Simulated assay, not measured.
Amino acid sequence: MMKDMASSDLEDLCFHINAKISNIKKFLLLRDIGEDQCRKSIFQKIGNEVIIVHELLNKMETEIKEQEKLKNLLKEMQKAAERDQNEAQHLLEHIPPYLPKPTQNCIAVPTVKHEEQKKVVKNEHVKKPAKETKLIKEVALITTEEFESVPTYMKGRLTYDQINAVVQEINKAVVGKYKIMYQPLKSMSVPARNLYHRFTEEENKDTKGMFFIVEADIKEFTQLKLDKRFHSILNILRHCQRLREVRSSKLIRYVIC
């Protein structure tokens, strides 16, 4: 076995040496041909072509490198697009139940315009009262960016959804109050008329032309508990400039910003 391996190595060595000798012979032959005056012009042309080919190879190498850079850039863009797609899909599958209203935070309430009703003599037909629309300003829901900007000590364990849930309940109280305020007195029930008188008594010069509620309105129109958690949320809404307080005569008015 050892003799076979030695024989194989010797054959490989002989083949390598013979190949080198053959190359040397070719080089010597080409050198002799190159000294021939008749072939010098041909060799010069070949040399020029070799230079051109070399330049083309350099350009190709540069272009290949640029294409590799472009390929790597496209791969990064593809990865970024895939990440964005995954994030968008995640957001689509986890849309929060409470989102801020895009443009306005008012609702329209039709009200009856007080004017004398004209009678037609022949048919004794009563003209229908003209209607006008009044707006009720609501508290805009907070955005996720605003929620993130609220200091940690102020948020505590409160979540984004919990805060906006309270906002919606506050808006119920605002709408409930001002629907009564916009009704004609003659059409009101006794309880509604009592509420109307309370609403007007709670107004003062600092709330003129503004929409506001008090804690009694929250108790009247919602099921919210006016506990420590509720007042913590009010602090956050003041921080986010959704509400402001007007105090007088031992009454706190929460004005809609």
Rank of each mutant, 00 (worst) to 15 (best):
residue 126 V to T: 01
residue 98 Y to I: 02
residue 123 N to Q: 11
residue 96 P to W: 10
residue 92 L to I: 00
residue 92 L to F: 14
residue 96 P to G: 05
residue 118 K to C: 14
residue 131 K to T: 10
residue 149 S to C: 03
residue 114 H to I: 13
residue 126 V to Q: 14
residue 121 V to N: 03
residue 138 E to Q: 14
residue 118 K to N: 06
residue 114 H to C: 07
residue 133 T to F: 04
residue 92 L to N: 07
residue 142 I to F: 03
residue 139 V to Q: 12
residue 135 L to R: 10
residue 104 Q to L: 15
residue 93 E to C: 10
residue 144 T to P: 00
residue 113 K to C: 05
residue 141 L to E: 15
residue 103 T to F: 05
residue 134 K to W: 13
residue 134 K to M: 09
residue 136 I to W: 01
residue 103 T to A: 00
residue 114 H to K: 14
residue 122 K to W: 10
residue 132 E to A: 11
residue 93 E to R: 00
residue 123 N to K: 02
residue 146 E to S: 03
residue 109 V to F: 06
residue 91 L to D: 00
residue 111 T to F: 05
residue 145 E to K: 01
residue 143 T to G: 03
residue 112 V to S: 08
residue 101 K to R: 13
residue 121 V to E: 07
residue 91 L to F: 12
residue 112 V to I: 13
residue 122 K to T: 03
residue 106 C to K: 13
residue 111 T to S: 00
residue 122 K to Q: 08
residue 95 I to V: 14
residue 128 K to Y: 14
residue 122 K to C: 02
residue 134 K to E: 06
residue 109 V to H: 04
residue 124 E to K: 04
residue 145 E to I: 00
residue 115 E to A: 10
residue 140 A to R: 15
residue 93 E to D: 14
residue 105 N to V: 07
residue 138 E to H: 07
residue 110 P to E: 07
residue 116 E to W: 09
residue 145 E to D: 11
residue 142 I to S: 09
residue 114 H to T: 12
residue 128 K to E: 05
residue 88 A to Q: 05
residue 149 S to L: 09
